[in-house]
């Protein structure tokens, strides 16, 4: 289910005073099953880009291949493409319209021409996937809270069982718990169903936590297309492009500048904790007896020494590693379901 763009351009209102070259010669490939993050300043072309993925916007020129087929070829089955590539817009709750949540979620599959029984089956499945409680299924979508509405709207897309799920800032305006719940749910779906996920977000921390790869858009061009670690290493360039790196990445750079030998290619909290423990641990374990002494520092800073003392004796190195594993900090795994910041 790969998506491949070749020299794709898009111009809004060509030959008018409002002409805007929104996408410039975009070449990229999104292989099936990947979790891709898309970041970029406001107006960088992110939303325009993703609306090409299911043919909502037709490129001014260039090619877009879905599973090897150019969707701009005459006779291409657009309807099928839209069934397979599900798009969740910004503020999708504004598109809720049915009398109850269940009917709203059934709307997509109904339009796919499925039987009422099948529609309902898929709707139930989708509602369970987004974690919306059963008592809301017959409620008016307008009675739900912001986070619940958004889940209902996402369920409406999931009920169509897309192979590619594209989400445009799905967490904007949600509280932290709502943010985590929705993204954890998406990560879970990604793992369970193997669907491709394309996530647009302004939260660098969220992107770093979930994406295998990041596409950075800047003034209509692809600026970077790489693993989070490599992308966020360019934090100064990112700042010039309206973006930033996750907070932890800045801390690692700061530590490095202070002469602590840490790997600066760290983008999540658990990776950072591992890396800091490793850097400090090496030092401490060279002077095993000194670890107790080290705790005096903590005391002086008003730290909770009882806590520190517990792991302070013994070999801190091993301790740190054990805790790291227990909290799901294994880097390969941390890209999946059990997200631990």
């Amino acid at each position: 289910m790969s998506i491949r763009l070749e020299h794709l351009n898009y111009i809004y209102s060509p030959n008018t005073a409002y002409e805007k070259h929104a996408l410039k010669d975009i070449c990229l490939e999104i292989p099936a099953g990947e979790f891709v993050g898309v970041i970029g300043h406001t107006g960088s072309g992110k939303s325009t880009l993703i609306q090409h993925f299911n043919g909502l916007i037709k490129a001014t020129d260039g090619k877009l291949f879905y599973n090897g087929e150019n969707i701009y070829e005459p006779g291409y089955n657009m309807k099928n493409l839209r069934n397979e590539v599900g798009l969740v817009f910004q503020y999708p709750e504004h598109q809720l319209f049915e009398i109850d949540v269940m009917s709203d979620v059934c709307f997509g599959p109904k339009n796919q021409g499925l039987s009422p029984e099948e529609c309902e089956k898929r709707a139930l499945e989708a509602l369970r996937l987004v974690g919306l409680k059963e008592k809301y299924y017959k409620a008016s979508p307008f009675e739900l809270s912001g986070g619940q509405k958004r889940r209902a709207a996402i369920a409406g897309v999931l009920a169509m069982r897309p192979k590619v799920l594209v989400l445009d800032e799905p967490t904007a305006g949600l509280d932290p718990k709502g943010r985590d719940d929705i993204l954890d749910q998406v990560a879970y779906l990604h793992k369970q169903t193997g669907m491709t996920v394309i996530l647009v977000s302004h939260s660098m921390e969220d992107i770093a936590r979930y994406a295998d790869r990041i596409i950075v858009m800047n003034h209509g061009e692809v600026m970077y297309n790489d693993r989070p670690k490599n992308v966020f290493a360019h934090y100064r360039e990112l700042e010039k492009a309206g973006l930033a790196a996750p907070q932890v990445t800045y801390i690692m750079h700061d530590l490095k500048e202070r002469g602590i030998p840490v790997d600066i290619g760290v983008t999540t909290v658990s990776e950072a904790a591992d890396e800091i423990m490793r850097a400090l641990g090496t030092e401490i374990s060279e002077n095993e007896d000194m670890t107790g002494d080290g705790m005096l520092d903590a005391d002086a800073m008003g730290g909770d020494t009882s806590d520190a003392g517990a792991t302070g004796d013994g070999t801190p190195d091993a301790d740190a590693a054990a805790v790291g594993r227990a909290s799901g900090a294994d880097t390969a795994d941390s890209k999946n379901m059990e997200k631990k910041r």
């Binding site: 932290p176 907070q247 909290v269 800073m301 517990a310 801190p316 740190a320 805790v323 910041r341």
Partner: peptide, 24 residues
């Protein structure tokens, strides 16, 4: 209360749990 703390605070908390002497 469905809220969070800044990422820096989470990291500090995590390091504290792993035995570093870091104030709350």
């Amino acid at each position: 209360y469905r809220l969070d703390v800044p990422q820096v605070t989470i990291l500090a908390d995590e390091l504290k749990k792993r035995g570093l002497g870091i104030p709350a």
